[in-house]
Amino acid sequence: MTERGLVIAFQTTTQALAWERACRERNMPGRLIPMPVAISAHCGLAWLAEPEDRESLLEMAEELGLGYDLVVELEGGEADG
């Protein structure tokens, strides 16, 4: 199985924690998860939210100047192999 939902990947742990802090302060949805391998085999953290939260999360990021790497919607499903 792979994750399902809106996944925001970060370049650094610090970016991820800044994102979490901002979301908590603004009551925005989502949580930190390990970087899904479906997005990147690199290690690190990612933010998991619902696809419908994309706009509000990215607006927040722009307003606060929060850094991130990628925004990907994962469909979920069985992992290969």
């Binding site: 970060f10 370049q11 650094t12 742990t13 610090t14 970016q15 085999a41 690199h42 290690c43 690190g44 850094g67």
Partner: peptide, 17 residues
């Protein structure tokens, strides 16, 4: 070790990592 970008041959350039 940086906790990010495992497969890169270079250490991450972003601060503070």
């Amino acid at each position: 070790g940086s906790g990010v970008q495992t497969f890169s041959r270079q250490h991450p350039g972003e601060m503070p990592e």
